[in-house]
Amino acid sequence: MKTDDIQLMAYVDGELPPQERDEVEREIDVSPELAERVALLKASRLPYRQAFANQTLPPVPESLTKKIEELARAAQAGQPSPASANDAVLKHGVHLPPSAPIRSRLRNAPAWLAVAFVAGVVCGGAILRLAPGVAPGIGANGATLASATMGASPWVRAAANYQQLYTRDTVAQIEPDTDLSAKTVDQIRRTDGLALRIPDLRAAGLTFKGVQRLRFNNKPLVQIVYLPAQGDPVALCVMKDVKPDQTIAQQRVDKMDVVTWRQAELSYALIGAPGNVDLPALAKQISDSRVGSIFSEATLARKAFSG
């Protein structure tokens, strides 16, 4: 019998039937080389599991736990496969080289985040819901801002939670795609029926990075992303909302500052991380139409008729 490594391992682990074991032992007796391998294998019988159990690993990141829960919920709700949705978005979304490492691909792909977002909000009302009244950060400007004690509406909370996933790196490398954005704005106006303009916030130091059509509870939700000179991106999110106008109100959703208002049957939420941008002032400028718009109606009309 020619004893091989696999047999030797089984021998050392006591997994050979008696007859085979005896044969192996006879071979070991006459072969120092086999005896050597057996000695090594014996020395390798170590408490691996215990050793690794004592290894201090970083905990599962909260962001990962959240994303997996969202994926799981989307799958359970019978959503179309999140990944194919992602691919579809990516085709006319962010163009990144396919060879980019996982890390950069995901970090820089808002389309991916959009999927996580959609997956989360479709069935995420329950998890995203804060207790009513738990809306700190109304702030010292409370006198000039409407009360926000009833808490943010579900879509605003969803959008704010989504925006938390954005880092400066997420959007810093994106070159705005004018054609794509114009097309998206056209779809927003014609398909989604939102009479929306994209505010030009350059005067306030914010660079337009892109506009996306997302969905919340099967209704269009528009997300316009800007990058300030410093700090994390700011998003202006908009949904149709057939209710009377509402003045601007500031609130805190989780770690994000949110300023909301309603105007001409559109609900707006301006969302950013605390600190870098004066969101209430910016909201005031937008709602007072004191800023220009990037994709003007004239541009869109030209495109619509020429196409």
Partner: peptide, 21 residues
């Protein structure tokens, strides 16, 4: 099994108390 055996022999060499191997 053969990868495992090679891995274990390599590890065994580190933990084998004998001097002469």
């Amino acid at each position: 099994m053969s990868r495992l055996s090679r891995a274990r022999q390599a590890i065994g060499a580190l933990f084998d108390g004998r001097e002469d191997h």
